[in-house]
């Protein structure tokens, strides 16, 4: 079932000295349910822009976006690179905040929050303040928060970009597990090719500015993904294929 259909999306910006920069041009993509789609591309191309357009943080110039249902559009989850936690609220309060804003605080939703705390290994830290947390824990909280109101679609903009390699590996595993358990559809922007291959069902490669879709690669790897998978020939093949595409761009 198609969740989102993006047709011929174009977006340009005016830079500080008045120039018109075409960020993305004629991008078409359809997102199916239960997919994990990574978007990679050279830096400066419109990877994040695409995500922000979908979440209505940014407007687009032309094209159309069709959501399978209205509810989807108003209830998607977003995870930024910076965890953006409210410093005066505890982990638990931060996760519950979206429910407060959306007036969705019910016994059911709060029970769901407890499940999320479990899922993201945050139970012991439920009363901690953000300043007491490591970068990885902050992002876990951010992810749990984005799921508190059970969105069907989760948008993630380089969420692990600011973390060290080991934390990133752990979180990749956790995210993959989370995805399989909660059956969300995830759109994931990253500059890390290995991360993209590890996590996704499909990888979208964007070209240089003005970005169009250079290619879409379906990742045909086993369902159960462990960190050892990264040393298998299939995995390495995908990575070098994608790296090749990116190198062509520059």
């Amino acid at each position: 079932m198609t969740m989102i259909e993006m047709k011929n999306i174009s977006k340009s910006f005016t830079s500080t000295n008045g120039e018109r920069i075409q960020a993305i041009k004629d991008v078409s993509l359809s997102v199916e349910k239960d997919e994990f789609i990574s978007i990679i591309g050279p830096s400066g191309c419109g990877k994040s822009t695409l995500l922000r357009i979908l979440s209505e943080l940014q407007e687009y110039d032309s094209g159309e976006i069709l959501f399978h249902d209205e509810n989807l559009k108003d209830n998607l989850g977003f995870v930024f690179q910076d965890s953006v936690l409210l410093p005066w609220k505890s982990v638990y309060e931060n996760i519950v905040m979206p429910l407060k804003i959306k007036h969705m605080e019910t016994p059911e939703t709060l029970a769901h929050v407890e499940e999320l705390l479990d899922l993201m290994n945050l139970k012991e830290f439920r009363n901690s303040l953000p300043k007491e947390l490591s970068g990885g824990m902050k992002q876990r909280t951010s992810i749990a928060r984005s799921l508190s109101y059970n969105p069907k679609l989760l948008l993630m903009d380089e969420p692990f970009g600011a973390l060290d390699a080991m934390t990133r590996d752990h979180l990749n595993l956790e995210l993959r597990r989370l995805w399989k358990q909660t059956k969300k559809t995830i759109l994931f922007v990253t500059h890390d090719i290995e991360e993209a291959v590890f996590l996704s069902t499909r990888v979208v490669v964007l070209s240089n500015r003005p970005s169009t879709i250079h290619d879409i690669v379906t990742i045909d790897l086993p369902e159960e993904r462990t960190l050892e998978l990264r040393d298998t020939p299939d995995f390495i093949n995908y990575v070098s294929r994608l790296r090749g595409m990116l190198n062509e761009q520059s």
Binding site: L57, L76, F78, L86, I101, K102
Partner: peptide
Amino acid sequence: EMYEYMKIL
């Protein structure tokens, strides 16, 4: 980003 997050919600 804080403002953007509020917009998302």
